[in-house]
Amino acid sequence: MTEQATWVPDDVDEEVPSAARLYDYLLGGAHNFAADRALAEKFLAALPSARDVARLNRAFLRRAVVFLADQGIRQFLDVGSGIPTVGNVHEIAHDIDPQARVVYVDHESVAVAHSQLLLDGNDNATIVQADLLEPDAILQHPETRRLLDFSQPIGLIMAGVIHFVPHEADAPAIIAAYRDALAPGSYLALSHFTADISPDEMAGVVEIMRRSSDPIHPRTRAEITELFAGFEIVEPGIVGTALWRPDRPEQAADEPGGSQIYAGVGRKL
């Protein structure tokens, strides 16, 4: 069996680009198809800083996981985890505590297939194939319940995924369903595309992504803040990915694409 055969499920239509595989391409990954790469090049034409935007979103994920671990979080639910690349949540968490437990969730078949390969033999991490719009299916999934103890704090991660939820789907209510299942002291780490900074560029991105299986729905800072209802937002608040607790504060403000995605972390009261 070839390597590609192991990560390309039979039900995948390689002609229909997906956001997960486009993101993989922007991050320099190899688990994408010609249609994904073609769309990614159009994405880059609309948003020239797109590779930096992807890199900075991934860097926010790393810093958020480290922050949560520093707060004592030892179990994580990563919804919309995408195709694994360098610096996955379980790798970051296990560097701090090898017994940390991680449940990844994605609906994209290639992301799930590649995650299964990566996690084979790992007793403290698993992947669930499900749609984030169906919280109960994720929260009650046997694999979720096997690894996560909902009587204890959990780090809920939604990095770069809620902007795929249409406005009519009521994202605040969806996140509230996850929040209500979490113990006090749990955290939400979230990042989300916005049109606040560069509306013309983001309008181009929205138009480009209409051609994929995952259209993008940017939200304002106020709308993204609303997603944290029931959480106490920690410092520095809802800011561009480059500005959320940067490793090098003196360079953060000058990062290209550092404000195209807002990011924040909140603690459940």
Score class of each variant (00 low, 15 high):
L190Y: 07
H163G: 09
A169F: 05
A177M: 11
P166L: 06
G155Y: 06
T126Q: 09
T144P: 10
E223W: 08
A229L: 12
T194H: 07
L139T: 11
I175L: 15
S191H: 09
A171G: 01
E134M: 08
A130V: 02
E134W: 03
T225Q: 10
S213P: 08
N122I: 14
G121T: 13
D170A: 07
P218Q: 08
S198Q: 15
L156N: 07
A181T: 11
P199W: 10
G230Q: 03
P142H: 02
L147D: 04
P184T: 13
T144N: 04
A137F: 01
I138R: 03
V165Y: 05
R210H: 11
Q129D: 12
R145F: 02
L188P: 01
A173L: 11
G230I: 05
R221E: 09
V205W: 03
S186D: 00
L132N: 00
E207D: 15
P166H: 06
P199K: 11
S151Q: 13
H167M: 00
L148P: 01
I127A: 05
I162L: 15
P135F: 01
S151G: 13
I224R: 00
V165T: 04
Q140E: 15
E226L: 08
P199L: 10
P218G: 13
V206L: 07
D200S: 10
S198I: 12
I175D: 03
E223L: 01
G204H: 06
G204T: 02
